[in-house]
């Protein structure tokens, strides 16, 4: 049965990778790929008096016909044009974390690293700082398409809060089973949104939601959703790494 599922998975991946080679496939006729990248992307502008106005004008705060409406260009590149690459990147991170857990998880000598007994101020202030740092991390990856930052950065900040709790309190313990559930959920949702892109628009991980107004929070279609999922996945994975490195009781 395991072999059956493995063969099915490999065939699906081969289909997604190879379906671009079949020109007569119906789903690919809806997109003009030459308009999708290149000149349209590089020449977009946000001002009225720009020399590129005739080519492609997108006004900040007004435009709603950009094919991906994120103000942050790096986020556009990562989550829209190279979203498949981001999926592979998240997979690499997941594999590395699986390797860390496999190497460190079963070792019997892996005792908890204990520090000098923390004083009262450190103990109390870390509990106050924890929700604030987690909130800041969530802010970073929810606003990844309009401000600097994104899923990976925000996820790292959330994991840093876990590391701070481990440093500040000797009896703190992360509930790592919940983190594993969160990680699996967000990784699966990423794939499901990608497959929905096939069924609705005809391309893997293509934007199928309303693009909205550039510069607003609810804009960019699929971009903020995918970046939130990536942020949740990265924060859960890196928290698990911190948990494995700090050792168990």
């Amino acid at each position: 049965m395991k072999k059956f599922w493995a063969i099915i998975t490999v065939l699906l991946i081969l289909f997604f990778l190879g379906s671009g080679l079949i020109p007569d496939l119906k789903i690919y006729k809806q997109n003009n790929l030459s308009q999708k990248t290149g000149k349209v992307y590089l020449n977009r502008t946000v001002n009225d008096d720009s020399p590129f106005k005739e080519i492609d004008k997108k006004l900040y705060g007004e435009a709603n016909d950009v094919e991906n409406n994120a103000a942050n260009s790096v986020t556009s590149v990562i989550v829209d044009y190279r979203a498949l690459d981001t999926l592979g990147e998240v997979t690499v991170l997941f594999l590395a974390i699986t390797g860390v857990i496999a190497l460190l998880g079963k070792s019997k000598k892996n005792n908890r690293i204990l520090f000098e007994k923390p004083n009262y101020i450190l103990n109390a202030s870390s509990k106050i700082l924890l929700p604030l740092i987690v909130l800041f991390g969530f802010y970073i990856f929810i606003h990844g398409h309009i401000t600097p930052g994104g899923g990976f950065q925000g996820g790292t900040i959330v994991a840093a809060s876990v590391l701070m709790m481990y440093f500040a309190q000797n009896n703190y313990k992360l509930k790592n089973n919940r983190m594993k559930v969160l990680e699996s959920f967000s990784g699966l949702s990423f794939l499901i949104f990608g497959l929905l892109g096939i069924f609705i628009m005809g391309d893997f991980l293509q934007n199928f939601l309303e693009l909205g107004i550039m510069g607003k929070l609810f804009s960019g279609g699929l971009i903020p959703i995918i970046y939130i999922l990536v942020g949740l996945k990265v924060s859960a994975e890196l928290s698990n790494v911190v948990y494995e490195f700090m050792g168990e009781e």
Partner: peptide, 17 residues
């Protein structure tokens, strides 16, 4: 930085790729 803002010329941003 390659982030579009109101009133900024797009020719001056660095390469985002």
């Amino acid at each position: 930085s390659p982030i579009l803002e109101k009133g900024e010329e797009i020719e001056r941003i660095v390469d985002p790729l």
